[in-house]
Design a protein around this nucleic acid. Structure first.
Lengths: 185, 185
DNA sequence: GTATAATACTAACGAACGTTAGGCGAAGGA
DNA sequence: TCCTTCGCCTAACGTTCGTTAGTATTATAC
């Protein structure tokens, strides 16, 4: 096993533990036990516990968000959002845990102020992007701002249901709900 | 200060700490410090840490949900849900923290399996109640099941935004969004 | 072959944790 | 008046925590 291999395995186990027990409920000892390595090896690859947690959010979580944003390619707006949500069902086990941990931090249920601020910044750019995407399809509607707001609320809750509560939603279900909000299109 | 007074103060501080730092991040010592009482006093009123946490969820959280469900009285369906969500802005500081902690458990970000099961039971009765309330107003619609589902997703996310993320939503904002989903009414 | 760096370990540090033993003073009924 | 109960405390129990000092093993470079 190479060094990077062990470093990756440590992070995989850490994501699992942080998810299950939170930052304070996770111990370096338990991570080491599950990785089947000695305790100081974790300090060999990561400065400390906080550094390990932060790297998961700052690197892996945002890399996942960016990767997902890039691989979209539907031209119809309802198809676009349907695919965006439905593809969450096919997330790898690791990605799903990273996503879940990210949402936990986004809701300030874990992590610190610094991470929260990064999340807020991302959210702002995301809301702006949704407006750009949807509003051209809602020309003439007097409540277009409210529609985008409603859509974002729906999307957030669908994402949470799949990623956090681990529930399955079929493609038709998702499309139906998005179509209800975007009925004007 | 009477005995019940101290017991209440302990729980108030505990709610605050559990909210801010989670179950494992909260220590009996820090609670005692904020309450300005000695450490064993907490064991005088509560069996142990888990007992204190469980009582907040089992008693206070569900009492809050029931209280909110009872005091509703709008006859128009859109007014009804608008009021239901908007009134969250006027929650007392303590109730808001209890609600937030409840949502944290509901999303299995804290607490244990037992509490989660109680939450799941409540959710089932809630979903059934929403169907009963909304479907009479959607007679003839072929997608009534999807509309109720969409409405629940919207409500959940609005509640989360107010209670968890501590954001303000005006009555008009809320009414606008609910009306978009219930456009058929 | 020998020095250097990277990878891994055992063992321990001090601090903080949940919890409890045991005692103190005031209040109230006998 | 004595004795029990209640509300409250100081002090400590044993355990676990994050973290590090110090050392062994291996691979690479010269």
């Amino acid at each position: 096993m190479t060094d990077t291999d062990l470093k990756t395995r440590i992070k995989e186990v850490a994501v699992d533990h942080f998810n299950r027990n939170g930052y304070y409920g996770t111990t370096i000892r338990n991570i080491a036990k599950d990785v089947q390595c000695s305790l100081p090896m974790i300090y060999y690859y990561y400065k400390n516990k906080k550094d390990l947690f932060d790297e998961i959010i700052k690197k892996d979580y945002f890399a996942l968000l960016k990767r997902r944003a890039e691989q979209l390619h539907a031209d119809n707006i309802i198809d676009f959002y349907t695919e965006f949500v439905y593809e969450l069902n096919n997330l790898s086990s690791y990605d799903r845990k990273v996503y879940r941990l990210g949402i936990k931090v986004y809701l300030s249920f874990d992590g610190d102020e610094e991470l929260m601020e990064i999340m807020d910044e991302w959210e702002k750019t995301l809301v702006a992007r949704h407006h750009q995407l949807v509003r051209p399809h809602l020309q003439g509607a007097d409540n277009d701002v409210a529609v985008v707001r409603t859509l974002i609320h729906l999307l957030e809750n669908l994402i949470e249901s799949i990623v956090v509560k681990n529930r399955f939603h079929s493609e038709e279900e998702i499309r139906e709900e998005i179509a209800i909000v975007l009925r004007g299109c």
